[in-house]
Write a protein that binds this DNA or RNA. Structure first.
Length: 488
RNA sequence: GGCGCAUUCGUCUAGCGGCCCAGGACGCCGCCCUCUCAAGGCGGAGAUCGCGGGUUCGAAUCCCGCAUGCGCCA
């Protein structure tokens, strides 16, 4: 049997990291077993459909490198892959269920259902439909039809017995049928409810494994019952542990920036997010943390999926992102970082210049966005923005004249260097510290602020090399000048 | 309220009866390297394995209760 799995997002908002972990596990399972990964759009709840959401979901999946074999945009042998375009399928089976006595039309008004529910709550009973329309006579039914009441279709849940769910991750889970409701299959507006639509689609699309969040576990007995009533073989079920926010509640938009595309905006690499999410609820062994896509595919399986939920650990993701950034070829990192830098400084940057800068910052950034803070000074024209206090630091705070003199000497030493590279630069400047009777670090610190405007920056001499003779000297003279005017 | 699921360092996890008075990773702390910041190296603190009963020569690992958390149903 060849594996067929699906990922069914609702186009009601952006794809968030909790959902996408489910997509990753499904994708991995399909790729591991040479199976098919199906993308299906569950938009039967039309009121919740958000314009543009579908496109952004597809974009997020593509960004993470999750490709699908059948789906709304590419079609496939079991299309269409959008539920709102499949209504006739659901109606056909709903009718079949009614005719076979497994379902019935219900004409109860929302008001009546509300009253029933309230009364049950008062009597501390579980809220359940009281099944009043289950045994309507033909005459009563005709009467409702004559009144023009649009019915919902309800499933006739067995009053007793139990339904067993064989879950690949949690084992057998048993539900008493009397705790189940006569749930709605088709709403009054003719749209099917999730349970019907997903069962029908999973069957017609020949899905072999339903892997979804744990939050669906409680509704699965309904699905099992539906499969039986329709005379179908149910797929295998695997309920994945959920991802929690810092407050240990199911991760959602409420927890802030949880959308996949927002992670992209914040400078995370797709391969890092993929790695991190793939390790939430699954592990390769007792020590491997950095796992590339191919290794995931080679080893992923359900037997190492955990049962317990996992809290999303932002710090670890950030660390992992740094690992991936450091492992990138410089050329590639330059390419990835370019849009973030351009956005920060507000103009285009030259790729060749960036290529020379990247090696200096590569092991200093954990997020692509950090390129801005780390390298913007390379692109500043004219004066750098820093205070005299920053320039002088602790060492020179009481001796601006000394600092000015030191800068003057630095300038004199490097002004006419024949080779403007970091080694000769260092060879020219380092001995000066001893001559001045100051620690090398103190002299370098002064020069660093003069050249970069920052106290924390990439290595000084390489920075000077990349910055170039002209800009470096300009900045040193500017700093010297500021100190003179301050001292004077 | 009913039903269901889960419970190992702060967090992600290893562990499937003796190798564990519990291993790895993130984070935290210290030291080293060092021109700052990082990266890297070394070391440290951190879990009576939710609690209580069993079973067993022996339990984080098996069984039963309880507690707590979460989810679903409206």
């Amino acid at each position: 049997m060849t594996v067929r799995v699906r990922f069914p997002p609702a186009p009601s908002g952006e794809l968030h990291v909790g959902n996408v972990r489910t997509a990753i596990f499904n994708w991995l399972f399909a790729r591991r077993h040479g199976g098919t990964f199906i993308l299906r759009i569950e938009d039967t709840d039309q009121a919740r459909v958000v314009p543009g959401a579908l496109e952004s979901i597809l974009e997020a999946l593509r960004w993470l490198g999750l490709d699908w074999d059948e789906g709304p945009d590419i079609g496939g042998p079991h299309g269409p892959y959008v539920q709102s375009q499949r209504l006739q399928h659901y109606h056909r089976y709903a009718e079949q269920l009614v005719e076979a006595g497994y379902a019935y039309p219900c004409y109860c008004s929302p008001e009546r259902l509300d009253e029933v529910r309230k009364e049950q709550q008062q009597r501390k009973l579980p809220p359940k439909y009281d099944r009043r329309c289950r045994e309507l006579t033909e005459a009563q039914r005709r009467e409702f039809v004559a009144q023009g009441i649009a019915p919902v279709v309800r499933f006739k849940t067995p009053a007793d017995g139990e339904t067993v769910l064989h879950d690949l991750i949690r084992g057998d889970v048993v539900f008493d049928n009397d705790t189940l409701d006569d749930f709605v299959l088709v709403r009054a507006d003719g749209f099917p409810v999730y349970h019907l639509a997903s069962v029908v689609d999973d069957h017609e699309m020949q899905v072999t494994h339903v892997m979804r969040g744990d939050d669906w576990l409680s509704s699965t007995p309904r699905h099992v019952l539906l499969y039986a009533a329709l005379g179908w073989q149910p797929p295998a079920f695997a309920h994945l542990p959920m991802i929690l926010g810092p407050d240990r509640a199911k991760l959602s938009k409420r927890h802030g920036d949880t959308s996949v595309l927002e992670f992209r905006e914040h400078g995370f690499l797709p391969e890092a997010l993929f790695n991190f999410l793939g390790l939430l609820g699954w592990s390769l062994d007792d020590h491997t943390e950095i796992i590339d896509r191919e290794t995931f595919i080679r080893h992923f399986d359900l037997d190492r999926v955990l049962k317990s939920p996992a809290t999303f650990n932002f710090d670890k993701l950030t660390w992992m992102n740094g690992v991936y950034i450091r492992s990138l070829p410089a050329e590639e990192l330059a390419q990835r970082v370019q849009p973030f830098l351009e956005r920060a400084i507000g103009r285009e940057v030259d790729r060749d210049a960036l290529r020379r800068i990247v090696p200096l910052v590569q092991e200093r950034i954990k997020l692509l966005t950090e390129i801005a803070d780390m390298a913007d000074f390379f692109f500043v024209e004219g004066e750098l923005d820093y205070s005299a206090e920053t320039l002088l630091g602790k060492k020179w705070a009481d001796d601006p004249a000394g600092a000015a003199q030191a800068l003057g000497l630095v300038i004199a030493r490097i002004d006419h260097l024949s080779l403007w590279e970091h080694e000769p630069l260092e060879a020219a400047i380092r001995p000066l510290a001893e001559e001045l009777g100051v620690k090398a670090g103190d002299l370098f610190g002064l020069v660093r602020v003069a050249v970069t405007g920052k106290t924390a920056a990439p290595p000084l001499f390489q920075t000077m090399e990349v910055l170039g003779r002209q800009k470096t000297l300009e900045r040193l003279r500017s700093a010297e000048g500021r100190l003179h005017s301050r001292a004077g």
